[in-house]
C-alpha cells in the first residue's frame, strides 16, 4: 500500500523546515517546545511525524500554519519557496485553507454545531475562491463524494450531530481538501475513531494524495499507522527529530535507541504474552541543551551523550541524531 519511494523522490521539495525552534515565554521561565526540527516534504509524499505526548509534533505542525498562540518561532519554514515565518497576517490567512489544509484529531468538536456541513464547506470555499453560491455548492458536493461519502447530498444538508464520527472526519477532510491544497496536515486524524474507521480514513488519505498530488504530514503516535501509509517517517523526541528514514527501513532497521524502544513497545500479534515493554523513565519537559535529550532513559548512553548533543547527520535517505547508533543487521 505504501507508495514506492522513488516516485516521490523525483518530486520537487514542497515544504522545507530548517532548524525550527518554538518557545513559549512564561513567568516561570521559557519552555522550548520545539528545539531544532529539520524536515522536508516533497509533493505527493506522506511523511509521518511520530513521537510521544509532549514531544512537540503538534506544535511543529501548528507552527507551519503559524497558529500557535503565544509562541515565538525562529528558523525557516518554506512552502513552495516562500518563507512562512516572515509573512504578514493577511498573506498567511490567504495560504491557510488554500495551499495548506488541516485535519484535526477530534471530529466530534471540530465542526461548528450551528451550521450544516454544506454551509461550512461553502464558507470554506468562499474564503479563498470568488465563486458564487451555486458553484461553491457544486465543488463542495464533489469533495464530499470524493472523500467517500456516498450520500453526499444528504450529508450536505446535515448538521454535524446527525453524522457518525467517521462521517464527520470525512467531512472534515473534505473541508480541508476543498481548495485542493498542496499540503495537508493531519494531526492524529484517526485517534478518536474506531479501528475499522481508522483503516478507512488512512486509505482515503492515501487515495487523495494520489488523485491530487497533495503532500500529507501525518502526525501520530501510532507506528502501525506509519507502517500502513507513510513513505517516510521522522521520529521526534523532546522537541527535535532524532531519526528520519523511509518507513519500511525505520521499522525494520531502527538506528536510534529511542526508535527501537518505540518499536519494541508495540504489542506483538504472534501471541507472545510476555509483559509489554515500556521505556524506563519519563520524557523531560526541559532537557539539558548540552546533552542528548534521550540520554537519561537510554541503555547505551555514555559520557559523551551526557556531555554533548549529537547533531542530525544525514546519509542517503536517512537522518540520525545519535552518538552511538545501533548496528544495522543486513
Amino acid at each position: 500500500m505504501s507508495c514506492p519511494a522513488p516516485i516521490a523522490a523525483l518530486a520537487p521539495d514542497l515544504l522545507t523546515i530548517r532548524n525550527l525552534r518554538v518557545h513559549f515565554p512564561g513567568q516561570t521561565g521559557e519552555v522550548l517546545a520545539v528545539d531544532g526540527v529539520d524536515l522536508t516534504l516533497r509533493a505527493g509524499e506522506i511523511v509521518g511525524l511520530v513521537g510521544e505526548s509532549g514531544s512537540g509534533k503538534s506544535v511543529t505542525a501548528m507552527s507551519i500554519l503559524r497558529l500557535v498562540p503565544g509562541a515565538r518561532s525562529s528558523g525557516q519554514i518554506a512552502l513552495e519557496g516562500r518563507d512562512l515565518i516572515g509573512l504578514g497576517a493577511a498573506e498567511m490567512r490567504a495560504l491557510r485553507g488554500d495551499r495548506i489544509g488541516m485535519v484535526f484529531q477530534n471530529p466530534m468538536t471540530s465542526l461548528n454545531p450551528a451550521y450544516t456541513i454544506g454551509n461550512q464547506l461553502i464558507e470554506a470555499v468562499r474564503l479563498h475562491r470568488p465563486l458564487g453560491r451555486g458553484a461553491a455548492r457544486k465543488l463542495a458536493l464533489t469533495r464530499l463524494a470524493e472523500v467517500g461519502l456516498t450520500d453526499a447530498a444528504r450529508v450536505f444538508t446535515s448538521y454535524p450531530h446527525e453524522l457518525s464520527g467517521g462521517m464527520r472526519q470525512r467531512a472534515m477532510i473534505a473541508m480541508a481538501m476543498i481548495c485542493a491544497p498542496a499540503l495537508l496536515i493531519a494531526d492524529e486524524p484517526t485517534t478518536a475513531l474506531g479501528v475499522t474507521t481508522q483503516a478507512q480514513i488512512l486509505h482515503l488519505l492515501d487515495r487523495l494524495r494520489r488523485e491530487h498530488g497533495t503532500a500529507i504530514l501525518l502526525i501520530t503516535h501510532d507506528l502501525a499507522v506509519v507502517a500502513a501509509i507513510c513513505d517516510r517517517v521522522a521520529v521526534m523526541y523532546a522537541g527535535s527529530v532524532v531519526e528520519e528514514a523511509p518507513s519500511d527501513d525505520l521499522i525494520d532497521r531502527p538506528r536510534h535507541p529511542y526508535t527501537r524502544a518505540l518499536i519494541e513497545a508495540i504489542p506483538s500479534e504472534t501471541g507472545d504474552r510476555r509483559r509489554l515493554y515500556s521505556i524506563p523513565g519519563a520524557a523531560l519537559m526541559r532537557p539539558d541543551a548540552q546533552a542528548c535529550a534521550f540520554a537519561p532513559r537510554c541503555a547505551t548512553a555514555s559520557e559523551r551523550c551526557r556531555a554533548a548533543r549529537p547533531p542530525l547527520i544525514t546519509s542517503g535517505a536517512r537522518g540520525l541524531r545519535c552518538w552511538h547508533p545501533l548496528e544495522v543487521s543486513p
Partner: peptide
C-alpha cells in the same frame, strides 16, 4: 478555545 474555531482559523478565517 473551541476546536471548530481553531479549525476555522486553519481554513484561513480572519
Amino acid at each position: 478555545g473551541a476546536d471548530y474555531v481553531e479549525a476555522a482559523r486553519s481554513m484561513g478565517a480572519g
